[in-house]
Design a protein around this nucleic acid. Structure first.
Lengths: 206, 206, 206, 206
DNA sequence: CATGAATGAGGTTTCATTCAT
DNA sequence: CATGAATGAAACCTCATTCAT
């Protein structure tokens, strides 16, 4: 990796931060380099100096947000805790994370719309999800002591879990419209989080 | 409004169909009018003749795909059927629909990324979801006869239901990556559909 | 000349009238054939059927308006009338005409900006101005009987006369701005007309 | 505001100068940005870099020419000079100016044809015409000492004055045609200038 | 490290005109 | 006589990128 002076690093970060916001809001094709530099006030040449190209800048933006997912705090959760506690904790963790990181959500969706091609190009390590590891543990334990149904597949469970949370972000506007309910309202979201927790808990228990 | 001849209508439809595919695959900004006309072989001027602008073409594409959702056949489902049958039917209906209409999924996600602005511009009628009406019925019945838990809100249930199905499409690539499971595989999807059905059924029953 | 049926002639006239208005307001280059047909509601093909091309339509528009100038009523004026009466009559005649025919003014200016090229193409007859003939007469008479100064050239007098009237139309907006006076106001124009008459009358008398 | 280097300013000026000539000759709609850049040899992107849009470039062209009018040297004219000298000086000043600045004349006419909309957009200051101030002075003085008729309104006088000069430029081609006199001929123009001076002087004197 | 100038390709849209019926 | 469909060229403007200092 290149090393930059302190001032340079600051410039770099300002560009990256601005780019993340714009790419998240308007997509890769919908965002112009001019817009990024106009927003930051930094000279356009700097984008190419620090990032090489628009695409590489986008990938760095994607990587930066993606890294946040891995930083999800799991410290307070342990495989030896009861399954109920673990599941509801994961749900609220995801809810908070997704709501707090709308840029991440948008970039993730975009990447999926793009068939994951940028992640391929970036050769991101296929890091095993720690969340999945945890779920595998607690489900196995739960199945042993009879609190979890036998045919629960932790992978599908994790997907359900994510899907239940993500949908509030990824389809917020169309759902608000169709169901006449404001999914931007904090109180509504609190109830939604609880509803998700409860339905999943009942969904897996034996 | 303008009247078109049969031949003109054909041209119009060819443009629209092509546009739907490209907008779904590459997004609004990522698709050029040139690309659309090159694909169809129709003169570029015709796009503006029939649709007025790229944006209006996009909106018509969106409306066309969106209309498919409303056409989801609910005829075989009835409010007086048992809740189990209804829920699992809805799940498999959504699964099939989303898998069969990837363009719809992409356009829907894009519209959400765009904060629903195009739907607003189009002044789409806020049609009450028939799916929601159905769920409200069967949940109420189920709660009366004791098969469904009291605190199930049909709206959150529907969202969960959609989220559980949608996630397999909207996040297919990143999930396949992270969980080391091929979500493009038909058999995997069959299992996933069953898993979703089961978890939700257990999730709501008293 | 071609002959058209009554209905056809009507269509033709509607196109021509619309074209005159648009060409006068927005210029030749600034007016599109589409705009003309959209305004009339007549099919675009008809423009080419009746006029051949946009340029020929423009020339016909120009000729139509130009013809109005020749129709200026001079019947009540005679060479044997006193010069004062003739001059003030001409002034008010021009004033009325120019104010009543803004399209003429605009097309005339445009033609001058275009170096008279269309008039050349149209091979318009270099019709001797009847106004000039009249002026030549009365000036000669006036000079003979000592009421008009010797060195008055009727041609320059006519130009002055036209210039004094035309300026209120051709430069209405910039003059209104610069002189803080509303040259669109009827009463102001009445005074202006009188002022022009008076200044010219005193300007030529011996 | 943006800062430009010396070299950039040069490029800017070349574009502007070329634009003035073309806009004056062919009008706003009749001039294409491509034509401007082809004439200068400068890349098209630069037009938008320095001027923002074709319209803004046009406005700057208009403003540049318009500014020349204000620069009309009035230094040699003083309110305490006799009215005859002042009027004939103004006439020849205008004649020279208009003949020397055909681009100004064309842009001014165009702006009037456009109802002064660009001047409105540009929020040009409604600078009091120094020429008018001067005329007000000398007319008042002339009226006091009995050399100028009482009912001369300096504003209408100025308009007449301008009209008498302008007409030779604004309607040069149609007048040359109609009156069978070459208004492009220097000697003819000299005589015309004198005729205007004389008619106006006699027109105002008591 | 940083800046403004510059570029060629391509973006969306509109043009005047012709075709087929 | 009249219509809607169709066209290729050119309009204005923006793009990601590179140059020169």
């Amino acid at each position: 990796m290149k090393k930059f002076t302190e001032k340079g690093e600051l410039t770099r970060q300002r560009i990256l931060k601005t780019a993340i916001g714009l790419f998240a809001k308007k997509g890769f094709a919908g965002t112009s380099v001019d817009e990024i530099v106009d927003t930051t006030g930094i000279n356009k040449r700097m984008v190419y100096h620090y990032f090489g190209s628009k695409e590489l800048l986008y990938q760095e933006a994607l990587a930066t947000e993606y890294a946040k997912l891995e930083a999800l705090e799991l410290e307070t959760l342990h495989p030896d805790e009861p399954v109920e506690k673990v599941v509801s904790s994961i749900v609220s963790t995801y809810f908070s994370f997704l709501l707090d990181n709308p840029d991440f959500v948008m970039l993730l969706l975009q990447e999926n719309m793009n068939r994951g091609l940028n992640l391929d190009k970036m050769e991101m390590p296929l890091s095993k999800s720690p969340m999945l590891e945890l779920l595998i543990q607690v489900v196995k334990t739960g199945q042993k002591n009879g609190t979890v149904r036998k045919n629960i597949d932790p992978r599908f469970l994790l997907i359900s879990l994510i899907g239940n949370c993500m949908i509030y972000c990824s389809n917020r506007f169309t759902l608000s419209r169709a169901l006449a309910i404001d999914l931007g309202d904090k109180q509504v979201l609190k109830k939604a989080c609880d509803a998700v927790s409860e339905i999943l808990l009942h969904g897996i228990k034996a």
